[in-house]
């Protein structure tokens, strides 16, 4: 919320969200409120770094800003998960489950959206849905990558199904590049000068969308979305 020319954060917590776990007999469940509040406070910390950058002039094009809006939650959840991981290490299991669900579903959903686009022809609708679904896949990856980084372990320390699923979905390269881009952002977190720092992360999303059949390019101050016919019928 705005106070004069400054923006402030107000953390709102649903009582039941913290009360039910606190009443649990399970120790891990009881720790969830600590994890949750720490995670949300980390978003406040991140906002303190991001806000000056959002206010500063940037050289990103319309397309790059579109990519930034789609991919920024990935960074945000990476950072919050990194900061809160130590308060509830076992939360990694839920985060992995969420991400693997997205790995199974999002590529199919994107394919279906492209099929639907062939009928309705509304490119803005396709672009919005693409940003939403691909952004979700990346965001869920951000949770996992951040939690792993916070615990100082790697994906190979997780159950073998994890990397096998990523490999099976053809997403290993995306996972590795995403991990590198987030680590790079993290290294410079308190020294960000402009939104340019998000370019490597945006590029990972740009390239991923190309692999699913959505090609973006800058055009006349806007963004051109090309959805070429593919040999497999999509």
């Amino acid at each position: 919320m705005k106070r004069g020319d400054q923006y402030k954060c107000h953390l709102i917590i649903d009582l039941q969200t913290i009360l039910e776990p606190l009443n649990s007999d399970d120790e891990q469940t009881m720790l969830f409120p600590v994890f949750l509040i720490t995670h949300e406070l980390a978003h406040v910390d991140d906002f303190s770094s991001l806000y000056p950058v959002l206010k500063a002039a940037n050289s990103l094009s319309f397309m790059e800003m579109w990519l930034f809006r789609a991919s920024q939650p990935t960074w945000s959840e990476y950072f919050a998960s990194y900061k809160s991981a130590a308060t509830l290490p076992s939360q990694i299991n839920n985060l992995v489950d969420n991400f693997l669900s997205a790995v199974r579903q999002v590529p199919n959903e994107l394919r279906q959206e492209i099929d639907s686009y062939r009928l309705h022809g509304d490119i803005e609708r396709l672009a919005d849905l693409t940003a939403n679904r691909a952004g979700l896949l990346f965001k869920f990856a951000g949770y996992v990558i951040g939690h792993l980084a916070g615990l100082k372990i790697s994906a190979s320390d997780l159950r073998s199904e994890f990397l096998e699923s990523i490999d099976g979905a053809g997403l290993r390269q995306v996972w590795d590049r995403l991990s590198n881009a987030l680590a790079e952002l993290h290294e410079t977190h308190k020294q960000w000068g402009s939104l340019d720092v998000f370019r490597p992360l945006n590029t990972v999303l740009f390239d991923y969308l190309e692999t699913v059949g959505i090609e973006l390019s800058d055009e006349n101050g806007g963004m051109y979305v090309n959805v070429p016919q593919r040999e497999d019928g999509d």
Binding site: M1, R3, Q6, Y7, K8, C9, H10, L11, I12, I13, D14, L15, Q16, T17, I18, V34, I37, T38, L41, A42, V44, D45, F47, S48, S49, Y51, K83, A86, T87
Partner: peptide
């Protein structure tokens, strides 16, 4: 508890308030 854990490693200068509500 959270504060002891978090505040030493976070910039919370923009945090204005926390509300815990039964009617979220």
């Amino acid at each position: 508890i959270v504060w002891r854990h978090s505040a030493t490693s976070m910039d919370l200068s923009t945090l204005e308030a926390i509300t815990v509500s039964g009617t979220y």
